[in-house]
């Protein structure tokens, strides 16, 4: 697989000593303890960890859905910790693209309408600009021929592609994928990974949260979490090609 040549020195995400505590009853649960790292523009980072390692909390923090108890989080140079609910909503709308495990598409709604949803909450887009952006996005994920298919008329892989198109449509600073291949079969998972790798090559910053260690082989960097701490942060020098992996898969019988 070719080296990503668009990685720059621009820091998209900077975490400084992030802690996040939850008070449950009388006990305090330390979900994140002193987590610090930076992610440069154009990186494809997998965040791994077993259940309870704090990766969901980290994802929520990175996605500006949650604010840390202490420490600083800069997204694209903006400090998030002190932001209010509404400004974080706007920040999510402009800077972040979410891809969820269960797609979270609106039911009975066409691909275009699903994809243009983030732009609906951005008043600077006209309805025609919105439509054009959505079509471009869908074409980019290879669904140019499925524009008006409704979500219940599509396969899991197609639905996840629509969700990725939705995450791309606002040109986010970072794409946050939460177990994005978790609900898909092996073949479709590789197809989605191919797509993520292509987006990576195009210069997108991707953070992929997963508990599946295999996916780490296809990313450019892997951060390992355990008990709320970063225990491993390594650059992947031998990025595998998902396209090849897909080609080597045994062909389905049926």
């Amino acid at each position: 697989m070719e080296k990503n040549n668009k990685q720059t020195d621009k820091t998209v995400i900077r975490l400084e000593c992030i802690t996040r505590n939850f008070v449950v009853g009388d006990e305090t649960v330390h979900a994140l303890r002193d987590v610090s790292f930076s992610i440069q523009e154009g990186e494809f980072v997998t965040i791994m960890g077993s259940s309870g390692s704090g990766k969901s909390t980290l994802l929520n923090t990175l996605g500006c859905l949650d604010t840390p108890t202490s420490g600083e989080y800069y997204l694209d140079g903006v400090s998030v910790r002190t932001m209010g609910k509404n400004s974080r909503a706007t920040l999510r709308n402009r800077k972040i693209g979410f891809v969820f495990q269960s797609y979270n598409l609106l039911p009975k709604t066409t691909a275009i309408e699903n994809v243009e949803l983030p732009l609906m909450y951005n008043p600077s887009y006209s309805s025609s600009a919105r439509k054009q952006k959505s079509i471009d996005s869908l074409v980019a994920v290879g669904l140019g021929d499925r524009l008006n298919h409704k979500s219940n008329q599509m396969s899991g892989g197609q639905m996840q592609r629509v969700a990725i198109a939705r995450a791309l449509v606002n040109d986010p600073a970072v794409i946050l994928a939460d177990e994005a291949t978790g609900n898909l079969d092996t073949r479709t998972s590789y197809e989605i990974l191919v797509l993520f790798q292509r987006l990576h090559v195009e210069g997108r910053t991707i953070i992929f949260v997963t508990h599946n260690p295999e996916i780490a082989h296809y990313s450019s960097r892997n951060i390992q979490l355990k008990d709320g701490r970063v225990v491993d942060d390594t650059r992947n020098e031998h990025v595998l090609s998902a396209t090849e992996a897909l080609a080597n898969l045994p062909v389905d019988e049926d």
Partner: peptide
Amino acid sequence: TREIGLRMSIGAKGRD
């Protein structure tokens, strides 16, 4: 609920 969660995560404010 999930639709509401999605809308919020992609930038809908409470008042929206």
